[in-house]
Design a protein around this nucleic acid. Structure first.
Length: 592
RNA sequence: GCGCCCGUAGCUCAGUCGGAUAGAGCAACGGCCUUCUAAGCCGUGGGUCGCUGGUUCGAUUCCAGCCGGGCGCACCA
């Protein structure tokens, strides 16, 4: 409807300008759905926007525009209001026209599934395979998956990918931790390193290794800890500087243990690593599956190292002259492209940084033919955006190839999570307690750049306050109406309903029709702005319109034409509810 | 110190690339079930949109500077 009105206004503006003998200002009319019914269905500020360039008072110009506005059978009335708004009142037929459209298309109404806008890759979650996902990761999962759905529904060919950080120091810490727990399984006792991963999920892998490999990885404690000294501990009430110093020393201590593990275990080291990664990834995959999240591809960081691409990708940057050496390390000149300082690619010891591999990964994505990359990251990684974007610009010359969506922090009402505390609330716990539907909807009930307070106690109690029930209830009520009809032996005559849409003239029906008509544009905006939460809010609005309608009017009535019209309307509503819930990854309920 | 995000009702949050009297849920209060599911509906109260300037017909929205909160500023990942 908006493009249609836009077209009418453009014609009017051109004609009015011609009559004035002036050039037509280069403005596209902005059409807004009105908040207030007394302002009609749509309004435009065109007269105010063009008042200055044309040198006319807004209301005077608005009158001229109306005089040149082409007649339309969809527009019942046009009037000038306030400082110069032009308000459009649609005819009843124009308002109900949305109903047959919806019913003809089905749940995908409002969606463009052609993929014609090109390829887009959405990389999301990519949680480190060193432990289970926590509630913060859940936000990225709900967001990324729904955003991908929205892209797919608005004309893009979407690829969903998970980047597995299975290379680098953290994997060594993981391996070392499993090994130490394995040693404990052998009946020895020692103080577990502070910078290791102590949790139960580590013990699980350790126990499995002992069951399969027996004591093949066993070594005497004297040998394991020989020459490492005593691990320093952070004293009570230490200041930040002291804490940092001691934490660094603890990292060194952990490095010593990692070296020891490599030396003593030899080829077995890799066996432990593979077992640990496999267990952690299995847990993550299983959690995501129970969260109704599917990926097209799981991409291994290690595979980039093994194939040599991690190095060859950097060679391209070198060839372009963006890499230089300083203090024995290889640096990338990201400051040329807006970063605040240059970044190390290869350390003085020759090892690649995480950044180097991540860069190679993004190069690989571009090589695979994705002109648009969307990364979903935690807000704590925001400082990382500039360097990746700089590198991509070096290679492609484009600033806009990468979009990073930052997930602000999730806090629990019962305090913040600690990733290494060992007994934090995992995403799996949350899903098990609340169910995947409510959890997804709750995550998407906030803008991603807003801190999210996840009231875990409320969620655990399965309270009715959760908005997802409200939306599902609307769907269930519609189902119930049709069930009642069938039980009474009635049949819904859709043809009669479509022929009788003119009978839908109450305020509640108009509100519902307006909400339905808004859906296609809402999808476009939600995808373009990457704001899936607007879809969650829309669903609540649509459900509210349905509930209001339900309470005010009976659908199963004696008047056959009226009943058919009303049932046709709620059938269309049900169709849109199902389509929108599908995009959110939430299942509709037939009964509560 | 520098950078990113945020500041809207008692609480949790929306506010569609600047629009008309700023919205929803929860909480408070008052109504509505012999009638398609009351997990619902209708109504009432509740606001200097952090502060101060600027841009203009018009600013919660854009800009600048303050104040307050969160998160980052590694040859870690």
């Amino acid at each position: 409807m908006k493009p249609y009105l836009q077209d009418l206004l453009t014609q009017a503006l051109t004609a009015a300008c011609a009559a004035l003998g002036k050039d037509t200002p280069a403005v596209t009319p902005v059409i807004d759905a009105t908040k207030d019914k007394s302002h009609g269905d749509f309004a435009t500020n065109l007269a105010m926007a063009c008042a200055k360039p044309l040198g006319l008072p807004p209301r005077k110009l608005a009158e001229m525009l109306l005089a040149h506005l082409p007649a339309s059978e969809r527009v019942a009335k046009v009037e000038i209001a306030g400082p110069g708004f032009i308000n459009f009142f649609l005819t009843g037929d124009a308002v109900t026209a949305v109903v047959p459209e919806i019913l003809n298309t089905g749940e995908s109404w409002g969606q463009d599934l052609s993929g014609a806008k090109g390829k887009v890759m959405v990389e999301f979650v990519s949680a480190n395979p060193t432990g289970p996902m926590h509630v913060g990761h859940g936000r990225g999962a709900a967001y990324g998956d729904t955003l991908a759905n929205l892209f797919a529904a608005t004309g893009y060919a979407v690829h969903r990918e998970y980047y597995i950080n299975d290379a680098g120091r953290q994997v060594d810490v993981l391996t070392m931790s499993v090994w130490l727990r394995y040693l404990e399984e052998g009946g020895v006792a020692f103080s577990f390193p502070k910078r290791g991963y102590p949790a139960d999920y580590i013990k699980f892998t350790a126990a499995k290794l002992r069951a399969v490999h027996g004591s093949a990885f066993q070594h005497p404690l004297e040998v394991v800890f020989e020459g490492l000294g005593v691990e320093p501990q952070v004293p009570e009430g230490a200041d930040d500087k002291t804490k940092d110093t001691i934490k660094l020393a603890q990292e060194k201590y952990a490095d010593g243990l990692i070296d020891r593990a490599r030396k003593l275990l030899g080829a077995h080291y890799g066996t432990i690593t593979q077992a640990a990664l496999a267990d952690q990834l299995a847990t993550i995959r299983s959690t995501l599956e129970s969260f109704n999240v599917r990926y097209d591809q799981w991409f291994s960081e290690q595979s980039l190292v093994d194939s040599g691409f991690a190095k060859t990708a950097i060679e391209r940057l070198k060839a372009k002259g963006f890499v230089y050496e300083k203090d024995g390390a290889q640096w990338l000149k990201t400051t040329d492209f807006g970063d605040e300082k240059d970044r190390v690619l290869f350390k003085a010891d020759g090892a690649a940084t995480y950044f180097a591999n991540d860069l190679a990964y993004h190069v690989d994505k571009l090589d695979r033919g994705y002109p648009l990359l969307v990364d979903v990251w935690g807000a704590d990684h925001h400082g990382y955006i500039a360097r990746v974007r700089a590198a991509i610009e070096m290679l492609t010359g484009r600033k806009d190839a990468l979009h990073v969506a930052l997930m602000q922090f999730v806090t629990l009402s019962s305090g913040k999570m600690g990733k290494r505390s060992g007994n934090f609330v995992t995403l799996q716990d949350l899903i098990d307690e609340v169910g995947p539907d409510s959890t997804r909807f709750f995550y998407l009930s906030r803008s991603h750049d807003q801190h999210l307070e996840f009231d875990i106690d409320l969620a655990r109690s399965q309270s009715n306050d959760n908005p997802v029930f409200y939306v599902q209830y609307a769907h269930a009520r519609i189902c119930s109406v049709f069930k009642q009809l069938a039980e009474k032996g009635g049949v819904h005559d859709e043809a009669l309903g479509l022929a009788s849409l003119a009978r839908l003239d109450t305020d509640e029906e108009k509100t519902l029709l307006t909400a339905l008509a808004r859906y296609p544009e809402l999808l476009r905006v939600a995808a373009a702005n990457r704001t899936p939460h607007t879809l969650a809010f829309y669903l609540q609005e649509l459900a509210a319109a349905l509930h209001g309608y339900y309470n005010q009017h009976k659908f199963l009535v004696d008047d056959a034409a009226l009943q058919a019209a009303r049932l046709t309307l709620i059938r269309a509503t049900q169709t849109v509810l199902r389509g929108a819930l599908g995009l959110l990854g939430v299942k509709p309920k037939d009964s509560m």
